[in-house]
């Protein structure tokens, strides 16, 4: 079926995407909660910044990542000095690019699910003796959970497909940053590699389709019977 080089591409893609969404989930949740529940100065700006990667040319996002997280960039130099983390030309850079591109989609999905949580249920829980943290843990989070899972699946699908920001920021290094789309792009440049292109494209399509179906299923499951009981 797949050659060892192709397996490397697939497994690297999975690793990059899973690390990206796991790492960005807390940030996505915090931003979604902030945008759904708080009114603060600069909210419109934060909202716009979160959504920027959705509309910017990915190559610009990659360029900005290079400026900030590159070896000479302020964050990049700092992360290297403090934690020894290198982003540029490294798989962690591919994960960072994927995380930034997945963030807007994840924030949107989580924010919708937090918006859908009835605040009257939260105040009922307060009167029953639960403090803010317990209300969050026992009411808000479980009710928003299907949206959080949907966000993870959507973010994963977006990460798997990430191309422009990755190739700009982390380059196209076999075994390090050559994920599925980069692998397909590379194979397309090689005469006679049509079969490899087709195989990698099929895997891409399969993963994306599965992710979309799982996400749709989660959303349906989440909305069924979760409305407040009606009198």
């Amino acid at each position: 079926m797949l050659t060892p080089a192709e397996w490397t591409i697939v497994s690297l893609s999975l690793k990059v995407s899973l690390v990206a969404i796991a790492a960005v989930l807390p940030l996505a949740f915090a931003l979604a909660w902030l945008l759904a529940r708080r009114r603060f100065p600069g909210m419109v700006l934060v909202d716009a910044l979160v959504h920027l990667p959705l509309v910017l040319p990915p190559v610009v996002t990659g360029y900005l990542l290079l400026l900030a997280f590159g070896p000479q960039g302020p964050v990049g130099a700092w992360a290297n000095r403090l934690f020894g983390i290198v982003f540029s030309f490294h798989w962690t850079g591919a994960a960072l690019a994927a995380a930034v591109m997945a963030l807007p989609l994840m924030v949107r999905a989580i924010r919708l699910s937090i918006d859908a949580v009835d605040t009257r249920l939260e105040s009922a829980a307060r009167t029953l003796g639960a403090g803010r943290w317990d209300v969050f843990r026992r009411i808000t989070l479980p009710l928003a959970a299907p949206g959080v899972f949907a966000a993870l699946v959507l973010g994963f699908a977006r990460s798997i497909g990430e191309f422009g920001a990755t190739i700009t920021f982390a380059s196209n290094i076999p075994g390090e940053t050559r994920t599925l789309p980069l692998g397909i792009y590379t194979a397309l440049q090689v005469p006679g590699a049509e079969a490899e292109v087709a195989r990698l494209a099929m895997i891409s399509i399969g993963l994306s389709l599965a992710a979309l179906m799982v996400s749709e299923w989660l959303v349906r499951r989440g909305t069924r019977g979760k409305g407040p009981p009606v009198l």
Binding site: D118, R120, L121, A124, A125, R126, T127, L128, G129, A130, G131, I139, L143, G225, K226, G227, P228, P229, L231
Partner: peptide, 16 residues
């Protein structure tokens, strides 16, 4: 949460 109210809401607000 510190008031000790047993509040029965008109819309009941059972946790779904």
């Amino acid at each position: 949460e510190a008031r000790g109210a047993g509040y029965v809401f008109q819309d009941s607000r059972l946790f779904p």
